[in-house]
């Protein structure tokens, strides 16, 4: 499993310097690390987080937004009519709840349909794995900044060490 501080440090090394989002249990370790480093601005809804990140981008930051995949549903309109239309990059760190049908009922539909949803929205995505972490992070950052669109890194259970291992 990837340690949260290693993951956050790798993002910082890539130049990511504005973090916001809404928590998920799978992202708990990352958020704790970000809070320790005083790098995290908590949002109350995922669309708000995405919009805040867009503002930060326009003010010179490289932003990342953390969210549970249910939050993709909440932020759909902002991702499309702000980021896509205005060409504003954003790194989305999305926990993949409901992966392979093993989760609470509320996560199962999004867990199954998320890759298609992202394809339909033309948001490039890839799932994070430990051996490819550096490459995954470079890809997500470069794709977002080069194409100036949101790009999603999907984080399954057990990949990054959480608060309760």
């Amino acid at each position: 499993m990837i340690e949260s501080d290693v993951f956050v440090q790798a993002l910082e090394n890539l130049g990511v310097n504005f973090f916001t989002g809404v928590p998920d249990s799978l992202l708990g370790g990352i958020i704790e690390e970000l809070l320790t480093r005083k790098l995290y601005t908590p949002a109350v809804r995922e669309d708000e987080a995405v919009a805040m990140a867009a503002g930060a981008y326009m003010a010179g930051k490289v932003p990342a937004v953390l969210m549970q995949n249910s939050g993709l549903g909440t932020s759909l309109n902002t991702l499309i009519s702000l980021n896509m239309i205005y060409r504003q990059p954003c790194i989305l760190l999305v926990s993949w709840r409901g992966f392979e049908g093993k989760d609470a009922p509320e996560h199962l539909v999004m867990g199954e349909t998320m890759p298609q949803l992202l394809d339909t929205m033309r948001i490039p995505h890839r799932a994070l794995s430990e051996p490819t972490m550096m490459d995954d992070l470079r890809w997500v950052g470069q794709t977002a900044m080069k194409q100036r669109i949101p790009v999603a890194l999907l984080i399954k259970k057990g990949i990054i060490k959480g608060l309760h291992p």
């Binding site: 601005t41 708000e48 995405v50 919009a51 805040m52 503002g55 309109n77």
Partner: peptide, 22 residues
């Protein structure tokens, strides 16, 4: 001026991102 089309409800969140960064 940042003129918005769409993403209704997000103006203060965009401004907050700018304000925190600048």
């Amino acid at each position: 001026h940042f003129y918005m089309i769409g993403s209704m409800g997000n103006a203060p969140a965009i401004a907050l991102g700018v304000a925190l960064s600048k």
